[in-house]
Design a protein around this nucleic acid. Structure first.
Length: 426
RNA sequence: GGAGAGGUGGGUGAGUGGCUGAAACCACUGGUUUGCUAAACCAGCGUACUCUCAACAGGGUACCGAGGGUUCGAAUCCCUCCCUCUCCGCCA
């Protein structure tokens, strides 16, 4: 969330952000300002009463010890009056702050100045594109045909056992998954300087709120209602919450974590053309990169994170492009976001395989993640970033489609062979 | 799942109703001393919110796992929940 002080002092900036992100109504800001003011007024009164009550209480102790029972009795009744008032004000303050907090969670992050304005996908800027789309002397087929031909994935049995979008990976298909995960993790650890961790795959509601899945996006998560827990839609959730409510030494920044996890997404409301094959499934594997950084360095870190994700694509020799997302296409927690899309020769389209974002202080403020600047200054909210490095299914799709040969066998990229143990599928 | 014990500041740990935002020690920061290092000594050292203030700074409130309750007054008593540990059961 945004700093309430910031909203108080820059309401117009916040209204602009709401319009740009097309998320929520600008009246939110006015209600927040109203509530903020009445909250503080209420608080002032409450605290004054508490202060008086404390003084009276202290005097009672003294009077009792001095044996002045009568005076003590009078003071007690005085304190009782104050108490009633305190209780009222306390309840009032709590109500107001509850409402205020709920609203604050619905105000989106402010886009960075370098983010292009725009409403839809057409306004995203392609800021980089490799020029190595593969050429074919035959008509390349979509990956689902290849999966089928080589028996790499079994969608039907996945549907029987669980439901649509929960495929089984078989044989070389399963092996390829494991190879990619290991390759991505090794790359992140050895060349990116990330520390590998294994987070829980299930989180509580506090964590889901911290990263911004709650409120409002619960429809995208699988919920374990009995235990009030959620299956993670991305490793971002448990990893970023790692430091929730903590203060980190400045010397320990930046902290860079990488992790492999399965991701679970309900994908409510998405049907049709984009869901074919591995394009969009409910459970998928992903290696995620997360960074906790000094606020002054977060945009540098964003480019670094982006380069880390692109390195994996380069090594796999996958053609890709980088999109700078416009204001309207960003999530409401993000300040700046790149998407990386790989070219899939069979479908002849770009597939999103990574989303790399700087959240600035937005998530960290929700989670109270701070660092202590050197030189006795107060703890300060740090900045969080994350990006996929990378998401598997579409990488697999592109890999199969781009590397298919006229006999329908599939070449495995050189860097992956030590991991797969085979250099061709089929 | 059953029984018991416990959760105090960055750490260890004292504290069973008012003088405790919290002893002591360690860590940390600054200073003195020192040829250097070490040691010793002195001082400082929680967080959030809020009010006054241009600022420096100062005042107030809250916080001893979380939330309620009792009381004029709670780290301290009561209730609920969460977590940790020990034993038993179950189990990869």
């Amino acid at each position: 969330m945004l700093d309430p002080h910031f909203i108080r002092e820059n309401p117009e900036r916040v209204r602009t952000a709401i319009r740009q992100k097309n998320s929520g109504s600008v009246e939110l800001v006015d209600r927040v300002l109203e509530l903020d003011e009445s909250y503080r007024a209420c608080l002032t009164e409450l605290q004054q009463n508490q202060s008086d009550a404390n003084t009276v209480s202290a005097s009672i102790g003294e009077l009792m010890r001095a044996g002045k029972q009568e005076a003590a009795g009078e003071a007690k009744s005085r304190a009782a009056e104050l108490k009633v008032n305190i209780k009222e004000k306390h309840a009032e303050a709590k109500t107001i702050s509850g409402e205020l907090n709920a609203l604050l969670l619905e105000i989106p992050n402010i886009p960075h100045d370098s983010v292009p304005e725009g409403k839809g996908a057409d306004d995203n800027q392609v800021v980089f594109e490799t020029n190595d789309k593969p050429a074919f002397e035959f008509e390349p087929v979509p990956h689902w045909d290849l999966l089928d031909k080589h028996n790499l994935v079994d969608f039907d049995r996945g549907s029987k056992v669980t439901g649509a979008g929960f495929p089984f990976y078989l044989g070389q298909g399963a092996r390829l998954q494991r190879a990619l995960v290991a390759f991505f993790l090794d790359l992140a650890v050895k060349e990116g300087g990330y520390q590998e961790i294994q987070p829980p795959y299930v989180v509580n509601s506090g964590s889901a709120t911290g990263t911004g899945q709650l409120p409002d996006k619960e429809d995208q998560m699988y919920e374990l209602a009995r235990d009030d827990l959620f299956l993670i839609p991305t490793a971002e959730v448990p990893i970023t919450n790692f430091f929730r409510d903590e203060i980190i030494d400045e010397d320990d920044l930046p902290v860079k974590f990488c992790a492999y996890t399965p991701c679970f997404r309900r994908e409510a409301g998405s049907y049709g053309k984009d869901v074919r094959g591995l394009n969009r499934i409910h459970q998928f594997d992903k290696v995620e990169l997360v960074q906790f950084v000094h606020p002054d360095l977060s945009y540098e870190a964003l480019e670094g994170l982006r380069a880390d994700a692109e390195r994996a694509l380069d090594r796999l020799k996958l053609p890709y492009r980088r999109l700078l997302m416009c204001t309207g296409e960003m999530g409401f927690t993000q300040a700046k976001k790149y998407d990386l899309e790989v070219w899939s020769a069979g479908q002849k389209k770009w597939l999103e395989v990574s989303s790399i974002s700087n959240y600035e202080a937005y998530q960290a403020r929700r989670m109270k993640i701070r660092y202590r600047p050197k030189g006795a200054v107060k703890p300060t909210i740090l900045h969080t970033l994350n990006g996929s490095g990378l998401a598997l299914p579409r990488i697999v799709a592109a890999l199969l489609e781009n590397n298919q040969q006229d006999d329908r066998t599939i070449r495995i990229p050189e860097v992956l062979v030590p991991y797969t143990g085979f250099d061709v599928i089929g």
